[in-house]
Design a protein around this nucleic acid. Structure first.
Lengths: 191, 191
DNA sequence: CATCTTACGAGACGGTCCGGTTCGTCTCTA
DNA sequence: TAGAGACGAACCGGACCGTCTCGTAAGATG
């Protein structure tokens, strides 16, 4: 879907497009995001966008991934409660900032674009879910947590309140709040 | 926001518009929802839509409310676990059907429309949250649940997994699954 | 170093789609 | 019976998409 071989691809244009996309979507939301707007803000011809990406959704997904690439590994100090607390703090801080706006925009776009929805799941959700589930399975094996609950279900319980607030906007996302909710979830899951 | 007094408003056109809106959004999602499409499917002029609603979002919100108006009261049998299980089963079944598609579309639209987001919170989320929180407070007073957790936080814990699946689409919403998750949440909240 | 290749920025184009208004008709009220 | 106003239909203007065509400049090739 990115036909030419990127031998002489302009790195500066590439970066400028990702940056411009991020800013545009923060300002105008997914509905207001347009290839023309991206190109104009990046100081780039439209063709340069169309040459390398099949759709504005693909650009936005790459822009998000570019900012979260390094945060996929999961810590293991032997204390599952501390590890989860640390991880959820990081995610909460990310989603409470512009990252939340962009991620929410992406989810909104995915609602009428099944292909984008699938890409988000594969590239963003599943790797992190799997990493967290693996860590949880170790905690179960170590006797820290009940072993009769599917780790994937635990991931859901732990992160769901975060997305609840992100999407419904009932209350702002705050790291301390999310840690409290985590404590209550863990209270029912200890061995 | 619905300027004329509705003395001679056509009841059939009103209903046809709500019905057409529901079907359109199920088929095409929020992004594909257009006043033209609504009017065409309802067999109505566009002006008839613009006369009574300020935006397509308002139409959609009313269409959703028209289908969920009666389900806002919360049961009280004296057994909080049973009451929550019954309630969450109903919501899960609703969100697993077309209702979920429409609600998701509405949330997607709210992402680039703060006014719509606020309306959804006021008209849809808050009344139900409040009803549930009231019931939970009674359960705390009766000694069924820990009293040191804000009932609104409990509502969040209980319903969050439902919205998690709705939005992320990781796994389908099923009533038995959601009841299992509810059990795990309650395990950490008993007095 | 000279040449060739190809992405680049800029912008024009046909086309589609949709929001908002205008128009003439018809119905209901007074 | 007269008039107000809601109705369905059709029209217009603007925005953006996706493609294309330039002249230019940067990188690849030998």
């Amino acid at each position: 879907m990115t036909p030419p071989e990127p031998r002489r691809r302009s790195a500066s244009a590439h970066l400028a497009i990702l940056e411009a996309t991020w800013e545009e979507v923060v300002e105008k939301g997914y509905a207001g995001l347009t290839v023309e707007g991206i190109a104009a803000r990046a100081g780039v011809g439209k063709q340069t966008v169309y040459r390398w990406w099949p759709s504005k959704a693909a650009v936005l997904l790459e822009a998000l991934n570019a900012r979260t690439a390094q945060t996929s590994d999961f810590p293991d100090t032997g204390d599952i409660a501390a590890d989860l607390a640390g991880q959820i703090t990081g995610v909460a801080e990310f989603l409470a900032s512009d990252g939340g706006v962009v991620f929410k925009a992406l989810l909104a776009g995915a609602q009428s674009d099944p292909e984008l929805a699938e890409d988000i799941r594969r590239q963003v959700i599943e790797p992190r879910t799997q990493a967290c589930a693996d860590r949880l399975a170790k905690a179960q094996a170590a006797g820290e947590l009940r072993a009769d609950v599917d780790p994937v279900d635990i991931v859901e319980l732990v992160y769901a309140p975060l997305y609840y607030r992100l999407i419904l906007g009932t209350r702002p996302i705050s790291a301390p709040d999310m840690r409290h909710q985590l404590d209550r979830v863990l209270a029912g899951l200890r061995a």
